[in-house]
Every structure is written in structure tokens, then in C-alpha cells.
Amino acid sequence: MTIVIQRLLDVLSVGSTYALLALGLTLVYSVMNLINFAYGMMLVWSAFVAMVLVNAGVPTPLVLVTCVVFSALLSVAVGRVAFRPFLTAPPVTLLITSFGVELVLQYVALVIFGENPRILKVPTYLSQVYHVGGVRIPNSELTTIVTALIVVGGLYLVLNRTRFGIRIRAAAEQPEIARLMGISPGLILIAVFAISGAIAGVVGLLWFAQVGAITPRSDLDPTFKAFVAIVLGGLGNARGAVVGGLALGAIEVLLSAVLPDAALGYSDAIVFGSVIAILLWRPTGLVGVSTSL
């Protein structure tokens, strides 16, 4: 029984990280056809900023706030400069463009921080492990889950209970008609990139706090996971993103528990293989609605 709870926590922790990632990615995708290959770099940049600040002795709460704000601003800047000219372009074009953006963002990080892994010093309380009734609850997992709940909850409230959020949803669904109501597409873009960037900022901290070391090339892993999560869940809707992220987390954790040691090295291959198998069964994703081809 305790093993079950343990696994459940693992799944929730890993899954909610992926869910947040997928959510940030999907938010932008819903207002313009951009599946952002450079999304992982936003996490990396957030982590690097955190590293610099932590090494300079800045207190943790201030580091958190600064990283989130920085990521939001970076996202808006990149959105404005690199993606806004492609507003009406098809998804494929934007995917390739974002690949170009990733190259540039990575290059700048390489120049500033170099190739070698840098350590992100994590506050000690995160390494604590609680023991409740025989179950090991690492504080890091708890923090991740709680953070994810707050972010997802907050996003839900904003999108469904505020005028601003309703306008974003309207613009995501029908941008031209939203203009007829007086909603400025430019402002919507800024808002969406900012929120997406802020989420990336948060996930970057969660991610690299777990991993411990940051390099400019560490962006591929989160980008992959985010991509797979949104495809698994179903492109283009927030619910799909969350479901996809949790499902991916579940697959990963369960596989690592079930696989014999000899096969553990192949877990990445098996995870993606399973995803592809699921997509065979449901080509539009677990929650996906079959729209265009």
C-alpha cells in the first residue's frame, strides 16, 4: 500500500511538471499556431538567472520572483521580435522558425555561460524528506505538486473568471471576430507570451532544482517532454495538455518501476514507443478533438 502511495506521488510530481510544461506550450499554440521548439531554452535561461542570483547571495523568494518576471519578459521579447511576424503562418513554418530561435538563444547562453555544466544550488529544505506512516515524501516532490496546483488553479481562474481571461479565450478561438469586439490581437499576444513565459520560469526552477546541473544544451529534454505531452494529450487544448503531461509522467514512473534492470537503460525508447503506440490507437491524442489533418 505504501508503495502505491509512493508511486502515486512520483507520478503526480513528474506528471505535474510535464503538465505545466505542456500548459505553457499550449497556451501560445492556442492563439497562434506556434509549437515552440525554443520553449526548453526559456527554462534553461530561468535556471541560469537563478544560479547567478543564488551565487550572489540573493534570498530565495526574491530569486523566485525575479526568475518568473525575467522569463515572462524574455518570452514577450522573443514573441514580439521572432514570432509576431509569423502570426498567420502555418504550424510547420512556426515550428521551424522556433528551431531557429532555439539555436540563437542557445548560442547566447553558450557564449555567456559556456558548455560545461553549472550547478544550481538548491535551498536545503528542498532536500528534506518527510516520513508519514511509512511513506517517503520528498519535499521536492511535494513542492512540485503544490506549485503545479497553484499555477494550474490560478490559470483556470484567470481564464474563466476574469474578463481578461475570457477575452484571451475568445481571441484564441476566433481572432478576427475578437477584433470586431475591440480586442487587440497585439495585446493578447503579449499577455499570452507573458503568461507562458512565467510558467516556463517556474518550471525551469522546479526542473533544474531536481536535475541539479544546467548547461545551455539541457533544453532538449524539457522541450521533448513538452512536445510529447501535448501530442499525447491532444494538440491545442488546455485539458489535453494537463492530461498528456500526467499521462506521460505515469508512463515514465510506472515503466521504471516495472522494467527489469537490464531493460532500464532503454526506458526512454520504451516510453516514446508507448506514446507512439497510444497515438496509433488515438491519432488525435487522448483528449484530442479531430479537427484539421
Binding site: 504550424p91 510547420v92 515550428l95 501530442v231 494538440l235 497515438l279 491519432p283 488525435t284 491524442g285 489533418l293
Partner: peptide, 8 residues
């Protein structure tokens, strides 16, 4: 899969 999903 659809175009973008296939790319991924």
C-alpha cells in the same frame, strides 16, 4: 498523425 504531430 497530423503534420505537426508527425514532426514531433
Amino acid at each position: 498523425l497530423s503534420g505537426a504531430a508527425a514532426s514531433i
